[in-house]
Simulated scan of single mutants.
Amino acid sequence: MIHVMIVDDQRPARMGFALMVAKDRELEVVGQVENGQMALDMLASLSGANKPMPDVMLMDVRMPVMDGIDATAAIKQRYPNIKILMLTTYDQDDYAFGALGAGASGFLLKDVRTADLCRAIHSVYEGDAILTPRITGEVIKRGIPNANAEAEQSGLRVQFATLGRRELEVASLVSEGLTNAEIAERLGIQPDSVKKTVSRILAKLDARERVNIAVLWYKADMDKS
């Protein structure tokens, strides 16, 4: 059973996501709160009472008291094993990059379909990142004002130069938003092999989350290297 917490300041949105999650028998909602501070308070309460902690959190970007970006940073610091999916809309793209830096595993548009939502929860639980090509390309690039700074770019390219040919292939596909299964199919290899390759890439790039591979890829402008 994968435990899910929903954090959104709009009650109808929370109820809607809860109903969608309930469609999957392998998912269970263990909490619903209306801002980041309440999420932190609930996590502390669950932890103190030895109750099931969420494996995955659905986190709104804009909320009163504490927004999704600050909450994500605080949660990942205190509970690094919890995966966080940001809930965003097209007009919130400028906020998205901050959440990547805070440790989010990816993004879902708020009009996501039930099947896609449940699939995304399973994917991040298993270690994938949820990055649509639009989010990966446009949002990350817009969120990096110094993406073309020569010193930073050169340093990152040196790091990517430590990767082997297969590792570079996988890093490129991760930056496009493909899951392990999709990468495996594209390259004609086993998903376990992709997972191990991603782990090596993270170690060589000194990156914490899979999504950071995409961030660093775009910072280095590797598509033009």
Score class of each variant (00 low, 15 high):
72 T>W: 04
217 W>S: 06
102 A>M: 07
196 K>R: 14
135 I>N: 12
99 A>D: 04
143 G>D: 03
93 D>F: 00
48 G>R: 11
100 L>Q: 07
200 R>Q: 13
4 V>Q: 03
53 M>H: 10
161 A>C: 02
26 E>D: 15
47 S>K: 15
177 G>I: 13
67 D>G: 08
31 G>T: 08
159 Q>A: 11
185 E>D: 13
111 D>S: 04
24 D>P: 12
145 P>S: 13
166 R>G: 09
18 A>D: 03
112 V>G: 03
111 D>G: 00
215 V>R: 05
93 D>L: 03
173 L>I: 15
98 G>P: 03
184 A>K: 00
203 A>M: 10
9 D>V: 04
106 G>C: 05
20 M>H: 03
7 V>P: 02
123 S>N: 11
214 A>T: 06
70 D>C: 00
17 F>H: 02
77 Q>D: 12
30 V>K: 03
204 K>C: 09
180 N>T: 15
135 I>H: 14
177 G>C: 06
84 I>Y: 14
41 D>V: 01
74 A>Q: 10
83 K>E: 15
25 R>W: 00
162 T>K: 15
34 E>H: 12
76 K>H: 07
62 R>V: 09
15 M>L: 14
208 R>N: 06
26 E>H: 10
146 N>Q: 12
175 S>H: 05
41 D>F: 05
138 E>K: 07
115 A>M: 06
121 I>H: 12
4 V>L: 02
219 K>H: 10
28 E>S: 12
1 M>V: 02
74 A>L: 04
37 Q>P: 09
211 V>T: 08
41 D>E: 14
156 L>A: 01
116 D>N: 09
180 N>L: 06
6 I>H: 01
170 V>G: 07
58 L>G: 04
2 I>V: 13
202 L>N: 12
32 Q>N: 05
75 I>W: 03
49 A>R: 15
28 E>D: 12
168 L>V: 08
133 P>S: 04
116 D>W: 09
114 T>G: 04
215 V>M: 05
51 K>H: 15
88 T>R: 03
30 V>C: 15
83 K>V: 09
123 S>P: 08
152 E>L: 04
51 K>Y: 14
109 L>Q: 01
122 H>M: 06
114 T>Q: 12
207 A>S: 14
40 L>R: 07
9 D>L: 06
224 K>S: 14
7 V>A: 04
200 R>K: 13
24 D>H: 05
115 A>E: 15
81 N>L: 13
3 H>D: 12
101 G>F: 00
13 A>C: 13
160 F>W: 13
111 D>W: 07
132 T>F: 01
10 Q>D: 10
91 D>M: 01
61 V>F: 03
224 K>Q: 15
135 I>Y: 02
157 R>T: 09
133 P>Y: 11
211 V>A: 12
222 M>K: 03
17 F>A: 02
110 K>M: 03
64 P>E: 03
161 A>Q: 12
187 L>S: 07
192 D>G: 05
67 D>W: 01
203 A>L: 10
101 G>H: 02
216 L>C: 09
11 R>S: 15
221 D>C: 06
31 G>H: 07
36 G>F: 04
31 G>E: 06
151 A>R: 09
192 D>T: 13
56 V>A: 06
174 V>R: 08
212 N>D: 15
136 T>Y: 00
83 K>M: 08
103 G>D: 04
84 I>H: 14
103 G>M: 04
164 G>Q: 08
82 I>C: 08
141 K>T: 13
162 T>P: 05
24 D>I: 02
40 L>G: 10
78 R>E: 15
25 R>D: 13
167 E>A: 14
60 D>H: 14
